[in-house]
């Protein structure tokens, strides 16, 4: 299976290379290292969100509330910053992580303790969290001029020539890589995605593990809330409206199986990059937004077809085994 995964990631990498090649035929500067760094930076938030979504999808669940969580948490930190500009930014990031964690824990609790399907729970909280944003803000915006220079400036500061936002994305990628390959939790996440029954017998608490993955996706949503608001310097009820679909699309393109159990950090990152290139670069070379949509849509379907073929091969083995038993 690992070979198969690598295979998929290589294909995705190749697709991205072809895409970059095609774009640079029309816009020669595109393949410049400096520009590619910029593309990475522009895609950082999507990558971070896709990783948070990935752990949820791996356990055969889904978190539709991530973008609303982002919106709510972003509003909280923006209002805090506007009201108390003296609060240091690292502390605000901690607040963002905690607020996101609480929202994620609510999802996780409902899935775990009340046994409600995650798609239903998060469809509900998707609306609730956005509604809550309206309640705390009274529908008002927080504008750039109300935010402190440090609030806006942190992610733009460069360290070793690379913006802090990119560094944060790299850090999150590294942490998720360790989580998925080097921790007992990561192993349990894969196991319950592939075979929840066998996991129960092996002594893994499936409900609790699901609770934890929703806490993780919540924290990621919160972190992305701060990053989004400080990047686009406006906090409103409309922030990232509908963005949950882009997050899920990035996961699907990255080869993460919606049926759970299959997917990797590399896949999620590449899936996000692919979408990022399409949405950031195509307008530059005057390709209409409708073509962009068509390309992203086709990529999703193509990814699912490729993944389904991979999984079917595996399915046949299971079927043979089931018959023999």
């Amino acid at each position: 299976m690992k070979n198969l995964l690598r295979y998929r990631e290589i294909w995705l990498l190749a697709a991205i290379a072809v895409l970059i090649g095609l774009i640079s035929m029309r816009f020669p500067g595109f393949a410049d290292p400096a520009n590619l760094r910029q593309v990475f930076n522009d895609t950082s938030i999507l990558m971070i969100l896709a990783l948070g979504q990935m752990v949820v999808i791996l356990t055969r669940s889904i978190d539709l509330s991530m973008a609303s969580n982002l919106c709510f948490t972003g509003m909280v930190v923006a209002m805090l910053n506007a009201a108390y500009p003296a609060i240091p930014i690292p502390l605000l990031i901690v607040v963002a992580l905690l607020v996101g964690l609480v929202l994620g824990a609510i999802n996780g609790f409902l899935v775990w303790r009340l046994n409600i399907p995650s798609i239903v729970v998060t469809l509900g909280t998707l609306t609730i969290y956005r509604g809550a944003t309206f309640v705390i803000s009274g529908g008002a915006w927080v504008n750039a001029d109300q935010m402190s220079p440090a609030f806006i400036g942190l992610q733009r500061a460069a360290f070793l020539g690379i913006p802090v936002l990119s560094w944060i994305a790299l850090l999150v990628i590294a942490l998720f890589f360790l989580l998925m390959t080097r921790t007992a939790l990561g192993r349990s996440i894969y196991a319950i995605g592939v075979n929840p029954t066998a996991s129960v017998y092996a002594g893994i608490d499936v409900g609790r593990t699901k609770f934890i993955v929703f806490c993780i996706s919540g924290m990621i949503g919160g972190l992305a809330g701060y990053l989004w608001i400080s990047r686009y310097v406006i906090a409103s009820v409309e922030v990232a409206n509908g963005y949950e679909l882009n997050i899920i699309a990035a996961c699907v393109i990255g080869g993460i199986s919606i049926a759970g159990g299959i997917g990797s950090v590399g896949g999620a990152v590449l899936g996000a990059l692919f979408l990022g290139i399409i949405s950031n670069a195509l307008p530059v070379i005057n390709i209409s937004p409708f073509w962009q949509m068509a390309i992203s849509g086709s990529a999703i379907i193509l990814a699912v077809v490729l993944n389904a073929r991979g999984e079917r091969r595996q399915g046949r083995i299971i079927l043979k085994k089931a018959e023999a038993a």
């Binding site: 299976m1 690992k2 894969y190 196991a191 592939v194 075979n195 029954t197 066998a198 996991s199 017998y201 092996a202 159990g261 299959i262 595996q314 083995i317 299971i318 085994k321 089931a322 038993a325």
Partner: peptide
Amino acid sequence: PEERGKQGVVIGLP
């Protein structure tokens, strides 16, 4: 458990 495929092995993991 009795059901090897369903309850025992996790096919897909090494």
